[in-house]
Design a protein around this nucleic acid. Structure first.
Lengths: 259, 259
DNA sequence: CCTTGAACCTCAAGTTACTTGAGGGTTTAT
DNA sequence: ATAAACCCTCAAGTAACTTGAGGTTCAAGG
């Protein structure tokens, strides 16, 4: 197609960077219908078609579906009523963006953990991701049960630096692993107590004094319907492991108080 | 299903927030296969299935496809080789994020323009979006042609506040409109010259002195293959309008120099 | 003028992660 | 026992393409 402003699909595709099958598709759905050579059926694109395609790409960029674009293309002017749909798109994009940012954060944390540990039990990792994923849901649940103090704790934790966050990941991971190894031993076994000590120190070194106090106070108060909460946060432990772990911590606290 | 840890699809769906058809689908593709009542065929989910589902959702959150998830679910541990795929996902997410941020910026600018103008010619709007969309491509093109000074100009423009950016949008839009109205009149017509004055002032008030100088110097230098560049930036004007506009600017500059 | 390879054509089917619907069986509460 | 609520399977639809088979047309060289 030697003419200066008539192009074959191939040339047009080359010029615009849009793959040929996509151009075929746009033709098929009536979005961009070039001229056709009546005898051969070959498509003939012209300069105007480049402009239409640019419009299509622009509207896609704004988040419109091809169907919506087909309608918008006919409009010669845009009026304020378009703003409504633009605002909607904007909201959707905002949500997507937040999603992506959270995912990126989680991935970074997982990558680092794997890097440092070499091999990591998949259950524990997935548990970690799960809690990152549902952080805001858990917060909302706690808000609903007016556990505002705990929300404070969580938020305090969030404000911590990346570094601290990561070392907490590592501690939680290490502890999970050790619990699984040590499970079955009596809770007063020195190995067990050393592990617990490690955990408690690391975990609370990241929290300020007064929050620790609030946290402790709260622990004393009665039962709530934790059923729902438990469903949201499957622990990496079996039920028995969890019980054993709780006992070991109780024992540790008692010992501390005696001293 | 009165049993405490056996659930029907409905109950399971309620508990987890995943729609029933989706659970059916996950069953079908072998991702989450609950027990089945052999006589009725009804699905029976248990507590373990909640955990599996949470794993699935976690891996989805990281950006894996259901197919990949099916394989990952069988793994009991994750090793460093997983990091490669995680990094890839991270990169993809980063790209998506940038895309979204750009779209959001563009939409905001368009919304504001429409708000202030009421009704806007769709060609001009789409042209505006097009240039936002291809900003980085244009910059790359200029880099390639070693027009680093122009890149400086563009970057300077980018650094300008949202406000300035917007008032530039508006100016460009207004000028486009006026060009279309005034086209045909002689370039020395006072109306035309007033319009040009307006444009030049607004446009260059946003650039610093030395960049203006560089820009001017550069303009004098010879031709390049602007063909390619033109393709990337379809002007909102017809060819004739563009010519007329260029002449009007030339005339304006001459007058300025005489004074 | 003929041939050959590249480019083009149409039409059908595949992709992902679901959603919707038709037509019919099962459970559960009354 | 019967009705409402719930469940089943299987088929088809969705968006925005991509892939492939099988056949036609074009452009250049001999």
């Amino acid at each position: 197609m030697n003419n200066n402003n008539k192009f074959s699909v191939g040339e047009f595709s080359e010029k615009t960077g849009i793959p040929i099958p996509t151009l075929h598709y746009y033709d098929e759905i009536g979005l961009l219908r070039p001229e056709k050579n009546p005898s051969s059926g070959h498509r003939i694109y012209n300069y105007q078609d480049i402009i239409i395609l640019q419009k299509i790409l622009s509207l896609k960029f704004l988040g419109y579906s091809l169907d919506e674009i087909k309608n918008l293309l006919n409009k010669t002017s845009f009026t304020v009523d378009l703003n409504e749909s633009l605002s909607l798109h904007l909201q959707a994009l905002e949500k997507e963006k937040i999603q992506i940012e959270q995912s990126m954060k989680s991935i970074n944390r997982v990558i680092r953990l794997i890097e440092e540990e070499g091999t990591v039990d998949s259950n524990l990792i997935l548990n970690l991701i799960h809690s990152m994923r549902t952080e805001h849901i858990q917060k909302e649940w706690m808000d609903r049960h007016m556990l505002t103090d705990v929300v404070d704790v969580v938020e305090e934790l969030e404000k911590k630096s990346e570094e601290d966050n990561f070392s907490l990941d590592k501690t939680i991971y290490q502890v999970s692993k050790e619990v699984k190894q040590l499970y079955g031993k009596p809770v007063e076994d020195p190995k067990v107590q050393r592990m617990i000590k490690n955990y408690v120190e690391e975990y609370f070194s990241l929290l300020s004094e007064d929050l620790m106090q609030k946290f402790a106070d709260m622990n004393i108060e009665g039962e709530l319907d934790f059923q729902e909460f438990e469903n949201m946060t499957p622990s990496p432990f079996t039920e028995d492991e969890q019980k054993w772990f709780d006992q070991a911590i109780d024992y540790y606290i008692q010992q501390e108080e005696i001293e």
